[in-house]
Design a protein around this nucleic acid. Structure first.
Lengths: 213, 213
DNA sequence: CCTTCAGGTTAACGACCGCTAACCTCCCTG
DNA sequence: CAGGGAGGTTAGCGGTCGTTAACCTGAAGG
């Protein structure tokens, strides 16, 4: 996957601006004219690229969920190590150092939360505005992502019962997804420092959850 | 403050149902007719109790912020202990055991997050839909609440710089406010167990943030 | 040079929504 | 037993919004 250097397509511009506006004012609070204006065209011109306003939200949410899940699976496979390359199922490849895998998952989620704040906001806020089929798809991707985390967490903290582990995972998501509330980017003590703080807190939260539960 | 035993007034019914609907589908996603239907009257009947739809949201958000702040101040004063009753300013009364104060703040926030889930959802989601004056008021109350936490946290972890402490507080709010994602009430391992888990995780997160920062 | 098509434009339609107007009906009170 | 206010009702207005229709334009291709 080479790094993108070419200019973003009009479609991508639209998705990016729509994400920002939806995050700022909510799906119903943004009109198609505003989205159009944000990319320099006006109103109905959007319909050359998307069949409707709903479709933009759907593509955003499916993209987010898929990206999170894909990234997590990749990290899990990598952390399995070259020695475990032959392992068939991803779940089995958590391997010898589950703690490193958990750290990697945390790091990946933090990267996403810091780099795509509007998407993180949408991700758990506008899900109910989707058509039934899209919503089911997104929920399925989200559930897989959660279950992947739960498995890793339980590998690190075997005493943690599954319902508690799932609650803990959701809570840590809440912690990591708090980045939109951390002030405008620039008021932060630096991206690396913030990422480090979040990572330490997430690990600390899990450790506290897993201690003699 | 005696415990309420009398029936809720119509106004209170409306606010409760409006909070639930706003949390479920967003402020713009709910019509006044639906709010009316939820309390057994229909549409414009609401205007006998509120000057407009905006006013309902405003009252909800101001109420939430005020209630959180008031509760926190009370806990801080109580934890100051009877011996510190003469202390003038609240900030000065954190007293001998700041860790106990922090635990109390956490407990209070958890109670709120578990008992009033729709309000917690609204609290950081629909703030921008308010009139300017109301939004300023809510933000001011929220900021005071945050600053109160920051002071206590820095008392417990003196090595933590202020920006980091503020980030940590916001992150822990994210953690505690994740309760709406924890599944329908009943799928949880019991309220007390959930509260305990959240409390441990919050303390663990703060501890990890404060360790040699 | 003519055609085609991607990607725009403006006008306008139909639905919905917040809110007001006008009216009705108990229930309490002097 | 008047009467007045609290708390409803339905009808409807005005504005907004998503979407469609009809039209335009510049660049690529045979």
């Amino acid at each position: 996957m080479a790094t993108r250097t070419d200019a973003p397509t009009r479609r991508e511009q639209i998705l990016k601006e729509a994400a920002r506006l939806f995050a700022e004012r909510g799906f119903h609070g943004v009109g198609v004219d505003e989205i159009g204006a944000a990319v320099g065209i006006s109103g109905p011109g959007l319909y050359r690229h998307f069949p409707g306003k709903d479709a933009m939200l759907a593509e955003l949410l499916v993209g987010i969920s898929g990206q999170l899940l894909t990234g997590a699976k990749r990290r899990l496979a990598e952390a399995g190590g070259p020695g475990a390359a032959g392992t068939a199922d991803a779940a089995g490849s958590i391997g010898a150092d589950p703690e490193a895998v958990l750290d990697s998952l945390i790091e990946g989620h933090i990267d996403f939360a810091l780099d795509d704040r509007p998407l993180i906001t949408l991700h758990d806020r506008e899900l109910d505005r989707l058509r039934d089929s899209d919503r089911k798809l997104v929920r399925q991707l989200q559930r897989q992502y959660v279950e992947l985390w739960v498995e890793v967490v339980r590998r690190v903290y075997p005493d943690l019962a599954e319902p508690s582990a799932r609650s803990a995972v959701h809570s840590v998501f809440g912690l990591l997804n708090s980045t939109p509330h951390l002030g405008r980017p620039g008021a932060l003590p630096g991206r690396a420092r913030t990422a480090d703080l979040l990572s330490r807190m997430a690990r600390g939260a899990f450790a506290a959850a897993g201690a003699r539960a």
